[in-house]
Amino acid sequence: MLITNMKEEFKVIANLIEENTRVLDVGCGDGTLMDYLKKNKNIDPRGLELSKRKIQESLGKGLSVIEGNAETDLKQFPDKSFNYAILSQTLQAFYNPEKVLDELLRVANIAIITIPNFAHINVRLQLLIKGKMPVTKNLPDEWYNTPNLHMCSIKDFFEFCDKKNLNLFKALTIKNQKISEINKRNLFSKNLFSELGIFLIKKK
């Protein structure tokens, strides 16, 4: 799974979240982002995580993390129990990303979704020139052992939101620690040169 931009990505996400809100971090890992939100934003976040070792690490930071999978365990949260649900670079690894997005927008008003962009120039070139499934520093796994099942591009995600009538009200990318907005006018170039897309969506 992608690890580049990790810290930058979390900083961007943290900046997007208002203080004193209710936050669910889906796939919270070792609780780095939750810990930051707790310490800096006066937020008492909740986390959902699969790895037992990482849950232990989070519990050791005093964070409340529940063992579970976004595809099966989001149903335990009541409608709109959170202001934000964060899903960082795992959407592409679900069997049914569409259903996960539905669930995220049921439990939270706003979903913050980040995806590794499969239309990045390096990825495109590898497929075009070598004729092989791309392996990059952001997508380090081979086709036969990647956890990623549903790769998509930034453009795909834009179109998805249109099609599903979702309000994609903010789209960002980070390059060399510089944050820039993605919009319909710059979509062609952003889709070509951005490795990561950060999206804020809500129901219309």
Binding site: D44, K52, I55, Q56, S58, L59, L63, S64, V65, I66, E67, G68, Q76, F77, P78, S81
Partner: peptide, 16 residues
């Protein structure tokens, strides 16, 4: 855990 989440209680859960 589900009941605790339903009332917004603070809960962590792990299966060993």
């Amino acid at each position: 855990v589900i009941a605790l989440n339903a009332c917004g209680a603070d809960v962590g859960f792990i299966e060993i």
